[in-house]
């Protein structure tokens, strides 16, 4: 049947239709996915960078220094990262709000049906990761947790640089802090074990067959990240990494 009314005459303005897309259910999801990708990439890169701690003081200090030397570029990156986290969280909160409104009354009997615990706890794990990031920045970047870190200096080929190596070693010698890191990293792994697999579905770059591959892959990556990260506090706390170097 012909349905004249079912046809929008001319396309609306660029801005308005962009906004419509952005705040549509699917648009919001895609934004979360895209920012999610940025964050994942950061987490991967950051882990690799951190692992240089195993190659000794100079290597990680050099890595940190090179980062610093980026100067304005570094600030651009930081800004971009900050924006990504902010948008990621903002949109997930929007989704959260709508989803609560759409499902006001829960069932008397709870049945998970296929939905994993990781998927169900995305918001909580996410928020916890947020809390972690805040602490972590205060800890190693803003050096608020132990202002003493600021005075750590090391000599790198005749150049005096901030001794990140010592900061990390001493930072993780504190068992409470290490434990907090390990727990947070576990929750991040939770978050990602659903998140990474999920984003392919959100972006529509999957099908019936591929989905299971993506999901296993996501799980593996998430827990590899976990292992990579905690290897640092664990080696320092238990295997005394850096004992020889840092008294």
């Amino acid at each position: 049947m012909s349905a004249s009314s079912a046809s929008t005459s001319s396309s609306p303005g660029i801005v308005s239709s962009l906004i419509t897309w952005l705040f549509s259910s699917i648009g919001k999801k895609v934004v979360v996915a895209l920012t999610g990708i940025v964050l994942v990439l950061f987490v991967i890169g950051h882990m690799l960078g951190n692992l240089t701690v195993f190659f000794g003081r100079d290597v990680i200090n050099a890595y940190a220094m090179h980062l610093r030397d980026l100067g304005p570029l570094l600030w651009l990156i930081r800004l971009f990262m900050l924006a990504s986290v902010a948008v990621h969280i903002w949109f997930t909160m929007l989704l959260w709000k709508e989803n609560l409104a759409a499902h006001p009354q829960k069932y008397a009997v709870f049945a998970p049906m296929k939905t994993t615990i990781f998927a169900r706890t995305m918001r909580l794990t996410g928020l916890f990761v947020l809390a972690f990031i805040v602490f972590h920045l205060a800890h190693f970047t803003l050096l608020l947790v132990d202002p003493g870190y600021a005075s750590y200096h090391a000599d790198l080929h005749g150049r005096e640089v901030h001794d990140v190596y010592r900061m990390v070693i001493e930072g993780f010698r504190n068992p409470i802090i290490s434990l907090f890191y390990i727990v947070s990293l576990a929750l991040l792994a939770f978050h990602l074990s659903h998140g990474i697999g999920s984003l392919f579905q959100t972006l529509g770059v999957t099908d019936k067959k591929m989905r299971s591959y993506y999901e296993t892959g996501a799980g593996i990556l998430a827990w590899v990240l976990f292992a990579g990260y905690i290897s640092i506090p664990v080696s320092i706390l238990i295997f005394g990494l850096g004992n020889g170097v840092v008294k």
């Binding site: 999801k29 895609v30 049906m113 579905q201 989905r211």
Partner: peptide, 30 residues
Amino acid sequence: GNCSNYYACEAVCPAGIPAAFIARLNREYT
């Protein structure tokens, strides 16, 4: 609500509609 890729829908669908169609819609809508 919005789809969070929970796949409960797929689990209960009596017609066996796979969630792959949701992925397709996500893509095509964008």
